[in-house]
Amino acid sequence: MSNEVLVTVDDRGIATLTLNRPDALNAFNADQIAGFNAAMAQVTADPAVRVIVIAGSGPVFCSGADVRYLKWAGGLSYEENKVDARKYAAMGESVYAASQPVVARVQGGAYGGGVAVAAACDIVISESSAKFAITEARYGFTPSLMVPYLLGRIGQRECRRWCLSGETMPAADAFRIGLADIVVDDSLDDKVAAVVDSLLMNAPVALAESKASVGENGYPPIDAAMIERTLDAFVAGRGSEQASEGADAFIAKRPPRWAMEADA
């Protein structure tokens, strides 16, 4: 088992998945995605697990997809790209579909795919100093896979703004629009522990039924057709010439050719 994602399950049934590539600010690459999916499969199938906490080691929760991984995926054939993209999409799907409540512990920041994973969680708890940004378009691809979860959390209005502008927002804005549910000035761990304690007071089956009921009746409904549509958009995006330019520019530490310097 890789150590890209650490898994612990304590005797109260609290499973903690820790993204563990701190040197890369926990950017998702193929190994970490596989590790995450394996860990989610393990803990969601474990009848002893009552709550799942998703955390990141180091200064930042998750900086999104690793640009080198995206570049690699962009070079695949459309079909191979889509097979791989399904694994990326499976992270959000497994969090959203887990019968146990899933809590995101966000320190430092969540960017791109890091926002996607957080958005799919039931409760997002963030440090007040953390930053959020939906940065995909900066690199020439699209935040397609998270759109269903974002629409459910922040609605179309805020989705349009933050997906199109790629602006960085402070945790206070993330809280205001519904991307973060709880923002704390003091100890993040204390708050996560308190929320987990309250979840453990609730009946597991009732929690599972409640979560399913909210998911099934939410708008928009996140069904197979929605997932397929977002996958196609994501695959087309990261296979595009723009995505290739975005990755090259990032690696070469130069602005991509579309970037304009404006006076603001």
Binding site: E136, F141, Q156, R160, G166, G237, S240, G246, A264
Partner: peptide, 27 residues
């Protein structure tokens, strides 16, 4: 101008695809 400056850093085709997808997913 600040929001525009952010938009102009983003890839044009990505933005067009992204906007279309949000509209389709939202209904």
């Amino acid at each position: 101008d600040g929001i525009l400056a952010n938009i102009l850093k983003n890839a044009p085709a990505s933005l067009r695809a992204c906007k279309r997808l949000i509209g389709e997913c939202a209904g």
